[in-house]
Design a protein around this nucleic acid. Sequence first.
DNA 1: CAACAGTTTAGAATAAATATAATGTATTAT
DNA 2: ATAATACATTATATTTATTCTAAACTGTTG
Lengths: 142, 142
Amino acid sequence: MAHSDQYIDKLRKSGLRPTKQRIKICEVLFDAEKTFHFTIKELVKIIENQANIKVSLATVYNTVHAFIRKGYLKEIPLNASQSYFDTNVTHHHHFFDEEENKLIDIHQDDVDEVNIKRIIPGKKIRSVEVIAKIVSDNQSQK
Amino acid sequence: MAHSDQYIDKLRKSGLRPTKQRIKICEVLFDAEKTFHFTIKELVKIIENQANIKVSLATVYNTVHAFIRKGYLKEIPLNASQSYFDTNVTHHHHFFDEEENKLIDIHQDDVDEVNIKRIIPGKKIRSVEVIAKIVSDNQSQK
DNA sequence: CAACAGTTTAGAATAAATATAATGTATTAT
DNA sequence: ATAATACATTATATTTATTCTAAACTGTTG
């Protein structure tokens, strides 16, 4: 299976040995047809449902964070009670639906390059993310 | 004191009665020469230092959230273990220094208008925020 | 001054995230 | 292969931010 090799590669590059549990996590994260957003809790639930194997919370946390460090996952900047992660690591942005508490991807092409004129001496920009909060548009009413 | 009247006004408009504790919170938040960022913990510490009066955690949380609802404070979208708030409610953006865990304002004029081409049916954009994560620029090294 | 509505508070409850320490598994050198 | 070693996994405990709760308090009104 070609996928499996990729997972092993990702794990090794993240400084982790390829174990059954970690490969299972990779399958859920990187085998999906589409990229998706998740919280740790949701990820654990998905694994539990699909799985013939038990993976502990701690392992999930550790593996996800190793992938974040390495850039295989992204954390979505959102002040929520739980952290949101994204398997889409390409440069893109988000709508956050405040009423349904749902994230929606905005493709990079749908947002003009964000041009920041200010610079901080000795620092460089590692990433730029746009969060657009949306709500129902009840323009008709009132 | 003219300031005091403003505080009472803000509290009333937020659906809160003007009490000693709440006015104290207003003083710390809205009396500063410059706008600033804070976590609840930091806010409590500032109040404790300045104060002749004890204000409980619960009161601080409740009051801050009432102000957020009303738009007198802004929550900064950042996936951190604690929530970050901003007394600057004008439209602006942030650098987040990942090494020092520090927020830096970016004035609206320093970022070109973010143009989002995509729309979500039935929804309207309530706010657009840019977060630029920055790290040390060790360009000299390798 | 008694009754009432709304406040404040300390402490308890909740929940996410992280740390710990014991047990389990894989790898290495022999 | 096998013993020795290094790394993993797990359940559980801990930590920390936030929210809830219930009792005590304050101030206003009849």
